[in-house]
């Protein structure tokens, strides 16, 4: 039997007190993890601040000429990063030119064309490619690819040499015995190895975004009679535009900071050089690797300033990439 509570019951029906204040253990949890977060913030943030602080004496000493001077000759009192910045950008740029189409094609192949049964394997292979140590790519580029790259460079020089970018002023493309040494150790050769590192990164981002394309829209395109390429062109690529740009820029960030592979391949040169096929170039990272050992305090500060400039560039590139991916439609999850 159920009893009907009457007003004369002893128990008072007070509403339960609802509090959002964390109690005992929860408070420990929140504060503990906030402490961990603060530690990491201090550690990582201090690196950026430290670099900036170290760059101050250099900038004060050399002034704006630090950014416009080509030569890096601390012994003679001239230090500037204009030359190596151009070198850094040209290596990364050429690497992107090589890596971007391949990354896009591979991502499309994995997400749209490959048989379903092998897709997971292919994804793993791309991830594996990203995990291969950079020094292995450096060896591959320096010892296996370089002779072939030199031949390609000579052919480009002979065919397209009238474009300043492909010119190699110090060599003659039609010489009977061609001088291979003028075509190796160039920004182009280094860029091939760097492209191998950029490629899996960009490809992974692109593939991820392509795989988020709403299935219904793809099927709608096919149902309207589109060919597979028609479907890819009208649905997958527009949807994935943010991922394509963002992935490429993430790869650019990696390419700008790459050290060992570039250091193994290039022969250092400190001038602003628009000829990517010609021997000799330099990047900020390779410069640091080459010069840190015998650097005096002032030179170390200059290297740190160069490193800070590199960090700012990669930071800007990565931030831009993140914004583009988030702004575009492909950054959002899809419902349904």
């Amino acid at each position: 039997m159920t009893t009907v509570p009457t007003q004369h019951d002893e128990v008072e029906a007070l509403p339960r007190a609802i509090s959002r204040r964390p109690t005992g253990a929860d408070r420990v949890f929140v504060h503990g993890f906030r402490a961990i977060g603060a530690t990491v913030l201090v550690v990582t943030g201090s690196i950026g601040l430290f670099l900036a602080w170290q760059a101050v004496p250099t900038l004060r000493h050399y002034g704006l000429s630090f950014f416009t001077e080509e030569a890096w000759a601390p012994e003679q009192g001239t230090v500037g990063i204009a030359g190596i910045l151009v070198g850094t950008v040209s290596v990364a740029g050429v690497a992107l030119v090589i890596a971007f189409p391949l990354a896009l094609l591979t991502a499309l192949f994995i997400s749209e064309y490959a048989p379903h049964s092998v897709r997971a394997t292919l994804v793993s292979l791309v991830d594996l490619m990203a995990a291969v140590p950079s020094i292995v790519y450096g060896l591959w580029g320096a010892l296996l690819v370089q002779p072939y790259a030199a031949e390609i460079a000579r052919w480009l020089h002979g065919t397209l040499g009238w474009i300043p970018l492909f010119d190699v002023p110090s060599a003659d493309p039609d010489a009977a015995v061609w001088d291979q040494t003028r075509y190796i150790a160039s920004a182009f050769c280094a860029a091939i190895a760097v492209a191998m590192m950029v490629l899996p990164m960009s490809c992974a981002v692109m593939r991820q975004v392509f795989s988020q394309t709403p299935q219904a829209e793809k099927e709608a395109a096919l149902a309207l009679g589109a060919t597979r390429w028609g479907m890819v062109r009208t649905v997958v690529l527009p949807f994935g535009r943010g991922g394509i740009v963002g992935g490429t820029m993430l790869g650019l960030g990696r390419a700008l900071g790459e050290t060992i592979a570039v250091y193994l391949i290039i022969s250092p040169a400190f001038d602003i050089k628009p000829h990517v096929l010609e021997v000799g170039t330099n990047t900020v990272a390779a410069l640091i690797a080459a010069r840190f050992g015998d650097a005096s305090a002032a030179q170390l500060s200059a290297l740190l300033a160069a490193g800070f400039a590199l960090f700012l560039i990669t930071l800007a590139v990565n931030t831009l990439a993140a914004i583009i991916v988030n702004r575009s439609r492909s950054g959002q999850g899809t419902d349904a």
Binding site: I47, G257, I288, G307, N318, T319
Partner: peptide
């Protein structure tokens, strides 16, 4: 900050 620091080139971390 953490996302920004993922942009730190490894050589600069070493330096």
């Amino acid at each position: 900050v953490v996302e920004a620091m993922t942009a730190l080139p490894s050589i600069v971390a070493g330096l």
